[in-house]
Simulated assay, not measured.
Amino acid sequence: MNEEKKQEYSKKTEELREALTALRKGIIFKNTRKPSIVRIWDTLRNKQEEINRILYYFSLELVFKDEGLNDGYAFVQPADIIDSSGDTSLDCVSMGPTKSWIMVLLRKAYYDKKLESYDTPPMKISRVEFYKTLREYTKDMTDEDAFRLKVDQQLRSIDALRIIRLKEKEIEIRSVIESIINASWLEKMDEIETAKSMESEDEE
C-alpha cells in the first residue's frame, strides 16, 4: 500500500471512529454551524452502509433522517432482527415504566398536533395540557403539586436526551420521537404491563 492510499485509509478510519464515538453518546442533531457536527453528519450521510456493517456485529442499527438545512437526527437502536431488551438509553426497559409512558404520550401529543396543523417540527404543547392528558393514563394522586413535581422530574431527564425542549409554560417535542417510539417500543411496553398485571394477580 503506497503512502497516498495509507493516508486515505487512515482518514476514512478516523472519520468512522469519530462518527461511531458520537453515536455512542446519544442522539446527534444536524447542525450546519458547528464544524465538528458538520463533519460527523457528512460521514453519517455518506457512509451509512459501512456504519451499519460495523453496528451489525453489536446487534445495532443506525437511524438516520435528514429533514432539511438545519433539521435532522441520527441515533443507534437495537436491530429489528434481534430481541430489543438490551440496556440502551433509548430503550423502554432501561427507562422504566413511568418515563416510558410519558414518552409514549409525548409521541401521541406530537402526532395529534401534527395532524391538526401544518406547522413544522418541533410541535408544541402547553405543560398544563400535557399534565391533564397524563392524568388520564395514571393512577389518581390527590396532591396536584406532588404529581406535577414527579412529572417534571421525568420530563427534565427526557429533555437531557434532547428529544424535547422544556420551556416555562410549554413543551417542544422534536421529530426524533417518531423514530424512537415505534412498534417495537409499544410491543415491549405491552409486555411490561402484562407482566406487572400477572404479578399483581399472583400476589392477591
Rank of each mutant, 00 (worst) to 15 (best):
Ala74Met: 02
Val76Ala: 08
Gln77Leu: 10
Pro78Gly: 07
Pro78Cys: 04
Ala79Asn: 13
Ile81Ser: 10
Ile82Arg: 11
Asp83Tyr: 12
Ser84Asn: 13
Ser85Trp: 14
Gly86Glu: 15
Asp87Tyr: 14
Asp87Gly: 09
Thr88Gly: 15
Leu90Val: 14
Leu90Cys: 10
Val93Pro: 09
Ser94Trp: 12
Gly96His: 02
Gly96Glu: 06
Gly96Val: 02
Lys99Cys: 09
Ile102Pro: 06
Leu105His: 03
Leu106Asn: 02
Arg107Asn: 07
Arg107Trp: 04
Lys108Ile: 07
Lys108Ala: 07
Ala109Met: 00
Tyr111Gln: 12
Tyr111His: 13
Asp112Lys: 08
Lys113Ala: 06
Lys113Leu: 07
Lys114Asp: 11
Lys114Val: 03
Lys114Ala: 08
Leu115Gly: 11
Ser117Met: 04
Tyr118Thr: 12
Asp119Ile: 00
Thr120Trp: 06
Pro121Asp: 05
Pro121Tyr: 03
Met123Pro: 01
Lys124Phe: 01
Ile125Gln: 00
Arg127Pro: 01
Val128Phe: 05
Glu129Ser: 10
Glu129Pro: 01
Leu134Gly: 01
Arg135Trp: 00
Glu136Tyr: 01
Thr138Arg: 01
Asp140Met: 06
Asp143Phe: 02
Glu144Thr: 09
Glu144Met: 04
Ala146Asp: 07
Ala146Trp: 06
Phe147Tyr: 08
Arg148Cys: 05
Val151Ser: 00
Val151Leu: 02
Asp152Glu: 08
Gln154Cys: 02
Arg156Leu: 07
Ser157Tyr: 05
Ser157Asp: 13
Ser157Lys: 12
Ser157Pro: 08
Ser157Cys: 07
Asp159Thr: 05
Ala160Pro: 02
Ala160Lys: 10
Ala160Leu: 10
Arg162Ala: 12
Arg162Phe: 10
Arg162His: 14
Arg162Tyr: 12
Ile163Glu: 04
Ile164Pro: 06
Arg165His: 10
Arg165Asn: 13
Arg165Met: 13
Leu166Pro: 09
Lys167Phe: 10
Glu168Ile: 13
Glu168Pro: 06
Glu168Arg: 14
Lys169Asp: 12
Lys169Gln: 13
Glu170Cys: 09
Glu170His: 13
Ile173Glu: 06
Ile173Trp: 01
Arg174Thr: 09
Arg174Ser: 05
Val176Ile: 12
Val176Gln: 10
Ile177His: 06
Glu178Pro: 09
Ser179Val: 12
Ser179Lys: 13
Ala183Phe: 11
Trp185Val: 04
